[in-house]
Write a protein that binds this DNA or RNA. Structure first.
Lengths: 219, 219
DNA sequence: TGTACATCAGTGAACGCGCGTTCACTGATGTAC
DNA sequence: TGTACATCAGTGAACGCGCGTTCACTGATGTAC
């Protein structure tokens, strides 16, 4: 009974390293996949390496994820969920609507720099099952934060993402996404050390503030 | 002697399909690589497929490019050269400095939509030898167009690309690059048919015009 | 509490695959004399 | 113009590699009675 308990109880003992059943392989594989992406990039991702890191045979993942794409899809979905959280976290340290919009962008960039390979995975076609419900929902939510925060400032609402969306909010998104993409690709120099990251974030702030300086007045 | 003549003369006859020497394998491989990228994306690229399309054994490319990365590097360099040309072409249909800056962005986006996989290759770490001189030069030149065109409008000059660059020109680049990236990744819907592409370009124009509306006044 | 059984979550061997790279080779081309 | 030779640009066989996927299997877990 208590042998079935998940989480802490499992780790507390560490006495059963050879347990036949893993306990929470799905989560362990997702963790492993994130680590592999971080260390080797999207190009270097393999299912077998994830299995190795989870301490399990390479056939085991099939019981939890149909195939490599299935695992990557979950990793991407989790990424979007974290991206949304990062946007909201950075935004909610501010109360002024302008600063809140700026904060949203800063959270976006911060997530990208700290999870570059995952960020790339999230926005790359073909690696991931875009029909997946969790992924689609998480992806839409991360954009929705922009729309909401923009609306706080300008008091307008926007249709779901589409060519007919308001050009202003798309401009906001494109700017932030472009900056994040360029940063991740190393166009602004390395971002390995904490100091380099802080530097880059400072640069992001200057760019975004420059953009706001000439933005239309709030409602 | 005339059998050595390159180009048209070689194609004119078509009588020597079995010629032992290809004539211009390097160029043929670059063409093939672009086609493979277009059809299969960065993920689907293989050296052997390029050789197949060039009608040559898979060991032949090594005589012209050290390895797969060597070929991809040349393809990326060519991509940047074309990107620069596209920017300038779109820019130079206008005379008004504001419209010229907008045109530069339009050319950028147009190139990206028409060569999505190549665009991705150009801006992806690890696939390409960034130390390559032709590539570095071509890459810098494509950004230089922004700087030049921006300077036409505002009369300032900027240091080479770096964190200390003027935030305004970086904002311009990030916006355009972000839009192009999102478009290529299908975030604005499919861009297969001519009509879809025209639609997207129209949307780009609206977004960039919206951005200019609130830009600082010219010099 | 004990037992029988179904289900679940792993194992590990085997498969076929296409890849990049290397190698000794050979035919074609260009050049020196 | 002819010949000898060096160089160049291909061939095709072979290599080792790690991959994803499949399969029959087995040990562990949960449940019904």
């Amino acid at each position: 009974m208590d042998s079935r308990t998940k989480g802490p109880a499992r780790r507390k003992s560490g006495a059963r390293p050879k347990a036949y059943h893993h306990g929470d392989l799905a989560a362990a594989l997702v963790d492993a996949a994130e680590a592999v992406l971080t260390e080797r990039g999207v190009e270097g991702f393999t299912l077998r390496e994830c299995a190795r890191r989870a301490g399990v045979s390479h056939a085991a993942p099939a019981h939890h994820f149909r195939d490599a794409k299935g695992l990557l899809t979950q990793v991407a979905a989790l990424g979007f969920e974290r991206l949304t959280a990062a946007e909201k976290h950075a935004r909610d340290t501010e109360t002024d609507p302008r600063k809140r919009l700026l904060g949203t962008g800063m959270g976006y960039v911060e997530f990208a720099i700290e999870h570059p390979a995952q960020f790339q995975l999230m926005f790359q076609k073909g690696l991931v099952d875009h029909a997946n419900e969790r992924l689609a929902k998480a992806s839409a939510a991360s954009f929705q934060v922009f729309i909401e925060t923009y609306s706080e400032l300008y008091g307008t609402t926007f249709p779901p993402i589409h060519k007919d969306a308001d050009p202003s909010v798309m401009r906001e998104w494109a700017l932030v996404h472009g900056f994040a993409t360029l940063a991740v690709q190393g166009q602004f120099g390395p971002t390995r050390t904490a100091a380099e990251i802080a530097d880059l974030m400072e640069f992001a702030r200057r760019v975004f503030e420059d953009a706001q300086k000439y933005a239309p007045p709030p409602k």
